[in-house]
Amino acid sequence: MPSISSALTLADWRARVASLYEAVRAAADPAEGHRAWREGRADLFAHHPQSPTAGDPELRERGVDYWPYDPTLRFTLEIEPADADERDVDGGDDGSVTLHRVGLVRLPEPLGGTLDVWWLHQYGGGLFVPMRDGTAGDGSYGAGRYLLDTAKGAWLGGDEQNLVLDLNFAYHPSCRYDDRWRCPLAPAGNTIAARVEAGERM
């Protein structure tokens, strides 16, 4: 069980991250929303006690790197049916995390490929879309990045059948920065060959 201090600061971290995505959705222009998201993340990484970069003072001061915003990498995609799949992954101190596949999305050319859309059983539920692309290990974290984790407020929009995915919001899981974190990583159905030079980079 976390300490009282740890529990409170983690709750505050999640609330602040959710507020960042609220600001993104409220922005008149996606690029402006992306700028606000980057600035907010930089502040959290530099100052918050739950920052995954807390053990790396140099990175905490310098901040993480991003590719420039590319408006052509924002899509509204239909969620198509996919065979049922369920998997349990190690969540470290949070225990096992159960993922249920609810469908998939097809990325348009020239990217191509598909990404599975998962539902998180924990945290009261939420959509989860990780991605491991051609930059993995050569520009981004080798185990992949996250596009959506709505349990933490990362919702860019959608409706009953469609999902907004903006690849510029791809970010590294906390385990990229600190081994004490255990993160669900991108499975085979969330791997594409194309290089997505957008979002957070090494």
Rank of each mutant, 00 (worst) to 15 (best):
T135H: 14
G144E: 11
R106A: 15
D149E: 04
P81T: 03
P108K: 08
C175P: 10
A7T: 15
W181L: 04
L107S: 14
D166P: 05
R62W: 08
L120Q: 02
E39S: 10
D149V: 00
L167P: 06
W37C: 01
G113E: 15
H34V: 01
V64P: 07
G55A: 11
V89D: 03
L147S: 01
A82S: 10
W13K: 06
L163H: 04
A84L: 09
T150K: 01
A82T: 05
A154K: 01
L8K: 14
P184S: 03
D65S: 14
A188P: 11
H47L: 07
P81N: 02
E109M: 15
V64T: 15
A15T: 11
V64M: 13
G157N: 10
V102Q: 13
T98G: 02
S96V: 11
A18H: 08
A193M: 06
L104E: 01
P173C: 11
L167M: 08
P52E: 09
T135S: 15
I79S: 02
H121C: 02
G125R: 08
L77V: 11
E32Y: 10
A15S: 12
G153Q: 00
V17C: 01
P184C: 02
P2C: 04
T9A: 06
G125D: 06
G95C: 10
P30R: 11
Q122H: 02
L165V: 13
P130I: 01
E78K: 01
L167W: 07
L10T: 13
T53V: 14
Y123I: 00
S19D: 14
S3R: 04
T135Q: 13
H172C: 13
S5F: 05
M202Y: 09
T53H: 07
D65F: 10
D94A: 15
E86N: 07
S140M: 11
C183S: 12
G55P: 04
S96A: 14
T72L: 05
D133N: 10
H48D: 12
Y66I: 13
A193I: 09
R132H: 13
E197G: 09
G189M: 09
D138N: 14
W37T: 03
G153V: 00
V129C: 06
L104M: 08
A11G: 13
R106E: 14
I79G: 03
Y171P: 02
P52V: 05
R145F: 12
R87F: 03
A82I: 08
L185H: 12
E78D: 05
T98Y: 04
P130N: 07
P30Y: 12
A154E: 06
G125E: 04
A194W: 05
R176F: 15
S6L: 09
A26R: 14
G139C: 11
L44T: 04
G103T: 08
L107K: 14
